[in-house]
Design a protein around this nucleic acid. Structure first.
Lengths: 215, 215, 215, 215
DNA sequence: GATGAATGAGAGTTCATTCAT
DNA sequence: CATGAATGAACTCTCATTCAT
């Protein structure tokens, strides 16, 4: 006897519970029963709605990366008529803001993609390629515009990504050891400032006038 | 039938296999049977030698953090008679080198400590507190010595830690997307240079003569 | 593949198989797989329906003691308007009859409660307290009615319980050594007669006219 | 490197620990490691000294039954020149006394022989046959001597055995519910008195002068 | 005699999933 | 759509025992 429930609510309900538990205990460490229990639904619904636990994982990844890439894409689209450093800074801000608003999902995704699973790789590889393409565009444009110093792009991007994701991946460490709270707006603003400064000092060539992103 | 085996080899054998599998599939995603199979020993040995799967995890953490903290401590001890920036840089280099040489263990540990498990927390909290103490010492000494700009220590340390650990946590991403290989000496040297530069530009006050660590 | 099976039959099926095996091999000596095999169901059903092997044990105990105590309670309720010896005799008969009809369960329960397990104790202690209360009522009523000799109640009850339970606990001994079959009606009747005689001769005072329970 | 230890002490040490644990947790519920730990010896010693866990069980049974049967045999030997009721009473007393002094062993043995194990049966069947022979002699002699009423021997012996063993099998019940302590001398004396009385009233023919056993 | 390392078997339990209702 | 019963596989861990030392 299926209870009515507001249409489509069960599915969203499951997803939210899953994100929360995956965030805390990891994908492998979470059982579908845990999720079902937290969502107050029958475990069979998970197989029904998401085609198994793995489908749930894919849904999470998709949901995350589509929004995440949009943060970058939105600013990359302006590269043709805006200084690259300003676009880059805005993109960084967008990403921080997005992660802060979805910190549970962010932590879980950044952690889980460090697992060497065939499955995970298949899901995310195209997203990561697109991310690579977008990030590179910022830098190549900056070089074209003579605003960025000539430096190894890969290293810089690795560092940028490190600094953007780490606070959210290790949110618990930040909270417990440094009493810093990545899900708060305050953190986003403060942290963004320091990334802005890093871009200015390590990436921008001296003659270029820093474009302070007025957010 | 208790075969002798080279004395004490079984235990080490298990540990290495465990690190390799934990690294690839995560702690929860790895079964003791997988480990035993990889180590070519009976699964019961894991409980016998490590008091269960969790004991194995603790052994990994302990092994990692004791070496890791020594990387920091070694240089912190010189703070009283050496410029803080030089000590800090040397510490950074030590950590990169250590992680590069133990990249499997490093990836696994940095990933796993982002899990909200009671168990993990109990094991690592004291290590993280010691790390915090050591890292803070570098910065406070740098301020005392008038070599570091006055900046929020917590943010800087978070960024430093991000940049030091991320390449190893996401080693697969680096390899596949950027063709950068964190376990190679070449990477350590190159990456260290860019961290050195970051320290010089974002942390050091202008008047201070940068101390190039001659490693 | 969840086969339907006749509704609720699986659970009862498991319980019966468990009683049979516990009876023969003891609780600790029986594995859940044995039980599942005997019941022709999947072993996981035991955890599902009874919350583990221990829950199965509790179900057995509950089932036994609730019926057993009813045998006593039924007659204790008549104590106010019936001679105590007659009530006692009827209660004894009820208990013998019940055990004979559930001899597998009876043997297993009487054996297992002699184990010093924390678990067992928690389950049965309230039942044993109720039993004590009921048994004492028979004797106190008999004394009030001037039908029972003044004797140490505890010793008498211990002996009564010994004689009521032992044939069922040691049913195999009775069968193999004395060719006496406690699960047969014949035994119940014959054995009851000798208990009746014991009550008359050791408990009743001489002047009281024995009340032969006409069962 | 075998520690010397007082000669043969390890074996006895193991046996005592085993009796204690078997008594509390049952044979199947006790592991050889538990026993070894309690005896502070290596678990391999149990296999060495007793040829496995089962051998330990056999040793316990043997030790118990040889003493137990001696309690009966000692008095059966006097049957030719002593009234049967006196012999029987003395035998009963001996058995109670022996069990009281070895209550841990007694409880465990009486419980364990109610298990339908092939193994147990093989060990004890000859002992039980000898017991049957001895007990029957008391009754047949009593009938020959015209001191016992003609009654079904099997029923009487079943009851006698019930009453003799039950307090020790259910010693914990006696302690916790009735505050009666079967291992104390006080209990032996008191309980024997009531068995004596039972023999007098239910077994002896009226004309026979009861032989109070002066113990 | 005694020990610690090692083993294969099996313990109880949980897993993700399926299916009739 | 939703559910509870059911499954087979896999989980971690403990078992009694063996054997070289």
């Amino acid at each position: 006897m299926g209870k009515p429930a507001a249409l489509g609510l069960t599915k969203e309900n499951i997803l939210l519970s899953a994100v929360s538990l995956f965030n805390t205990k990891g994908y492998s460490g979470t059982s579908v029963r845990d999720i079902a229990k937290k969502a107050s639904v029958n475990a069979a619904n998970i197989s029904y709605h998401f085609n198994g636990k793995q489908g749930l994982l894919e849904s999470c990844f998709t949901r995350f990366f589509e929004s995440y890439l949009e943060c970058l894409e939105m600013e990359a689209d302006k590269l043709d008529f805006t200084p690259a450093d300003e676009c880059l800074k805005r993109a960084v801000f967008n990403v921080l803001q997005f992660q802060s608003e979805n910190h549970l999902l962010a932590r879980f995704v950044w952690r889980e993609i460090s697992i060497d699973s065939q499955v995970v790789r298949e899901i995310i590889s195209s997203y990561l390629m697109k991310e690579r393409y977008l990030l590179k565009r910022f830098f190549e444009m900056g070089l074209d515009q003579n605003r960025f110093t000539s430096m190894p792009v890969s290293i810089f991007i690795i560092q940028l990504k490190s600094m953007m994701s780490m606070p959210f991946l290790n949110s618990q460490y930040l909270r417990e050891v440094w009493h810093v709270f990545p899900q708060e707006q305050h953190f986003v603003d403060r942290y963004f400032t320091s990334l802005e400064q890093w871009i200015d000092q390590c990436l921008l060539i001296r003659s270029a006038v820093p474009r302070v992103s007025t957010l």
